[in-house]
Amino acid sequence: MKNKTTIEIVNSDGQKQAVEVILAFVSEKTNKQYIVYTQNEKNGEDMIILYASAMIESNDKIVFEDISDDEWKIVKDKMRDLMHQKGEDK
């Protein structure tokens, strides 16, 4: 097993928070960076909540911005492809 990649983000309340990176990639379509991460929160049905944002580097900081429906589809397809591809390899 690999070590988890953890980063520290600043939430909307201005507080720093460590999150686990699930996936990060650059889309060839949009030429933008996207990140999928989680705080390992669970909903009532014991499902993990994932978050997806576009990573934009601006001056001395990185901003996680909201993504459009098309970008969201790109992110989900990326996750789906990876799971299928690696699942078959296994």
Partner: peptide, 15 residues
């Protein structure tokens, strides 16, 4: 260098 959250989408996945 810090990451600032301005927007995000959410989805659910099993552990």
């Amino acid at each position: 260098m810090e990451a600032e959250i301005r927007g995000k989408r959410t989805c659910l996945i099993s552990a």
